[in-house]
């Protein structure tokens, strides 16, 4: 068993190409998913059942099934439907990158909505009552009191979700996308040197996860600079 160091150096440029795709997928899915999550959580906490129940079902489905299965439904499954294959949407759904982004975004939205809901429920009800007593409307209270505090409370759980999404991007390689994992699988298929290549890919993910974790810790410290 030999460990071939030069193989790692030779495959670095290709892994970096993969890193670019991983990063693009990651940032797009995280930002769009989080935006969608804000809309979802507003519906979820609504007292109107026709708003909250569909969102509950949506969250239940996406949190209860593996991302890989969701991805397969979207990428391999949707073309079975006539209106997708013949309609204008086909331009998007035949692109593997779009499908991976779509699946991850829907997934992020479901998990993040639930995290934000936890944050909103964690806001001290005394604060909300105080804002009401001050004559603030429901919208004002939500924007100026509930939302900022809820965001702060959600951050630790949200940072875990950020790491989970990073790890989930690796699944994109199952639908022919050459992200870091996809490139690594291709190189391993050519060279049959799994240790060298897969471990290099693993280090790339570890570094990314480390950067994300530290970034969030920084943000957390900044947000809570008034507390304690």
């Amino acid at each position: 068993m030999t460990f071939d160091g030069s193989l790692i150096i030779d495959s670095l440029p290709r892994l970096m190409d993969g890193l670019w795709i991983t990063l693009r997928l990651y940032v797009l899915a995280l930002t769009c998913g989080t935006t969608l999550a804000i809309a979802l959580v507003l519906m979820r906490i609504s007292s109107k059942k026709y708003l909250s129940w569909p969102v509950m079902g949506y969250i239940y489905f996406f949190r209860g099934t593996p991302i890989l299965v969701q991805l397969f439904i979207i990428y391999y499954g949707l073309p079975q439907l006539e209106f997708i294959r013949t309609g204008p949407l086909w331009t998007f759904f035949r692109e593997p990158f779009f499908c991976a982004w779509f699946a991850l975004t829907l997934n992020v939205a479901a998990y993040t909505a639930e995290i934000f809901r936890g944050g909103i429920l964690g806001v001290n009800s005394g604060l909300v009552e105080a804002s009401k007593a001050l004559g603030m409307t429901y919208t004002q209270t939500f924007r100026k009191v509930t939302a900022p505090i809820a965001f702060k409370l959600s951050l630790p759980a949200y940072s875990n979700e950020m790491i989970s999404v990073l790890k989930a991007t690796a699944l994109a390689s199952t639908v022919t996308i050459f992200d870091v994992t996809g490139v690594a699988r291709k190189i391993v298929a050519e060279t049959f040197a799994p240790y060298e290549i897969f471990l290099s890919a693993a280090i790339i993910y570890l570094v990314l996860a480390w950067v994300i974790q530290n970034g969030v810790r920084h943000l957390e410290r900044r947000i809570s600079r008034y507390a304690n």
């Binding site: 068993m1 790491i163 990073l166 790890k167 989930a168 991007t169 690796a170 699944l171 390689s173 199952t174 994992t181 690594a184 699988r185 391993v188 049959f192 040197a193 799994p194 240790y195 897969f198 471990l199 890919a201 693993a202 993910y205 570890l206 996860a209 480390w210």
Partner: peptide, 23 residues
């Protein structure tokens, strides 16, 4: 803990399966 939580599950699976197979 750091290693197993930071590496994608999917990649870890590939490392375990193909790594052990080559060895």
């Amino acid at each position: 803990t750091v290693l197993c939580r930071g590496i994608p599950e999917f990649l870890l699976l590939l490392i375990v399966y193909f790594g052990s197979a080559v060895t």
